[in-house]
Amino acid sequence: MQQGVSWEYLVGHANYWLFVLLMMTGLYIVVARGNFVKKVIGLNMFQSAVIMLYISMGKVAGGTAPIFPIHGEIDPATVYTNPLPHVLMLTAIVVGIATTSLALALIVRIREEYGTIEEQGIWEAEQEIAARERRQYGEVFGEGSQ
């Protein structure tokens, strides 16, 4: 960094920046859109970006997939890509699909309970329930005139 920004530096870091862009797209969907299915997809995008970031950190230039030849000697000159990120990200993918399926099941349940899968719709339904309860119990608590 001290010797100024070179072309190699830019190319060597473009992968991280692309994944950050993808991650932020996912985060934007989660934060800005109200539909729950869409939020889950945004979360999945975020997760994929993290996985890609780790996998790209393990890549060695000129390396090959980390599998030894079955027959014959292992050539010490062969360069293998780092297998440790692959192992960790395999776990992450499987746990990710487990949480995604749980989230989708929750969405189905929410739809059954509220009749909507939008944040805004659930807020309106809650307001309605609160208003009804105020009407019902308002006299007991002394605020029935509202």
């Binding site: 960094m1 060597g12 862009l21 985060l27 890549k59 060695v60 390396g63």
Partner: peptide
């Protein structure tokens, strides 16, 4: 949300500035 996402992204990119180059065989991870 756009503002929040931009700030977070800028922070993350700032965090990658010290990372080793892509495919570097001498990176700490290797």
């Amino acid at each position: 949300p756009l503002f929040v996402v931009t700030v977070t992204g800028a922070a993350l990119i700032y965090g990658t500035l010290d990372m080793p180059d892509f495919g570097d065989p001498n990176a700490p991870a290797m």
